[in-house]
Amino acid sequence: MHAFQTINPDEILNTLVSLLTAFLMGGIVGFERQYRQRTAGLRTNVLVCVGAAIFVDMAFRIAGADGAVRVVAYVVSGVGFLGAGVIMREEGHVRGLNTAATLWGSAAIGACAGADLIVEAVLATLFVLAANTLLRPVVNSINRLPMDAQASEVTHIIHIITPAEQRQAATQALEDLLEQENYPLGELEISAFAETLVEIKATLMATSIDPRDSDRLQARLCAHPAIQQVYWETSTSE
């Protein structure tokens, strides 16, 4: 039988070393993720790492180095879909990007192990772990710095509350004012706010707005007879 003919003790030992390396390295990365209660924890990272190692090792044995290279390319794209599943958007905030990137790193570690690049797999594990641990205090320090409204790329949204029968006049006033101030309008949404009121939500295309400009825009809009209330929403999550 062909199945028995493919049994080679040396190759099986080589595969065992690759998978064991992937299991241990994925476990190290996954332990840190599990400790921090992330979506993709210990088991997920180990499975991704071992899975990548299995595919690359199998391709290497069947088709040689060329086959392994092709499989690595498929591993990279395939894990991209898996990572997209852990990315969530909640109330304008994107969560899970770091978890998805960690899964990508685990797949790379597994691919190294499957290709018999054991030292490279260990080094990759150290760098992925360092990115998730050593860089955390740096990120926290940066996040505590005062935000420079001129330099930061943010999304500015104007919310206008107006009577339903005055929405056309309020919308026209908003568009005219933004055109005068040279702030291009990116998206405009109108939705019911109460029984007799509507909310106009205008997303600006500009990436930075001087706080004095926003105050002036708000004051001019509030002075319009068709507008009852105006407030700004600023998001730096994207």
Rank of each mutant, 00 (worst) to 15 (best):
G30V: 03
R36P: 01
D213K: 13
A206G: 09
H156S: 14
A219S: 13
I200Q: 12
T203R: 15
L103V: 02
R220D: 13
Y231M: 03
M88K: 00
L126M: 11
A59L: 08
I54W: 09
F60Y: 14
L117T: 00
I7E: 01
V48G: 03
Y35N: 12
M1E: 04
R95Y: 09
P184N: 09
A223K: 08
I12C: 07
R167V: 11
A52M: 08
I190N: 02
A22C: 08
K201Y: 10
S214E: 13
D10T: 13
H159M: 13
D57A: 15
A113I: 04
A65N: 14
R38C: 06
Y74M: 10
L42Q: 08
S106H: 05
I118F: 11
D148S: 15
G114M: 01
S191P: 01
D210K: 12
V72E: 05
M58I: 15
L24K: 06
Q229W: 12
I7S: 09
L188N: 07
F193V: 03
G96E: 01
A3F: 14
I54S: 06
G96W: 06
L221P: 01
A164D: 13
G78D: 05
R38I: 01
L103K: 02
L16D: 00
V79Q: 00
P9C: 04
E90R: 14
E187K: 15
T207L: 09
V76D: 05
L19Y: 04
R33E: 07
D57Y: 06
S106M: 09
L221C: 06
A192M: 08
R144Q: 07
M147P: 03
L217H: 10
Q150C: 00
A59P: 08
Q218M: 10
Q5P: 09
G92F: 04
L129N: 02
D116V: 01
F127Q: 04
P137V: 00
M88Q: 08
T234R: 13
T234W: 06
P225N: 08
I87R: 04
M205L: 15
A206K: 13
T133W: 04
R212I: 11
H224P: 01
V79N: 02
Q228K: 12
Q168M: 11
Q180M: 06
T99V: 07
A63F: 14
E181Y: 15
T162P: 01
A73W: 00
V17L: 15
A151M: 09
Q168Y: 11
R167K: 13
T125R: 04
T15N: 14
L178F: 15
A52I: 05
A68E: 08
L20R: 06
I209H: 10
L19R: 01
A219F: 04
I109L: 03
D213F: 11
Q218F: 02
V56R: 00
E32S: 10
H156R: 10
D210T: 09
P137A: 09
Q218P: 03
L178A: 12
E179M: 10
K201P: 00
T207W: 06
A84N: 03
A131E: 07
E165I: 09
V119W: 15
L126F: 08
T171F: 08
D10N: 12
Q150D: 10
M25G: 00
P211V: 06
I160T: 14
F31Y: 15
S191I: 05
M205W: 12
A151S: 13
Q168K: 12
A131Q: 01
A100V: 06
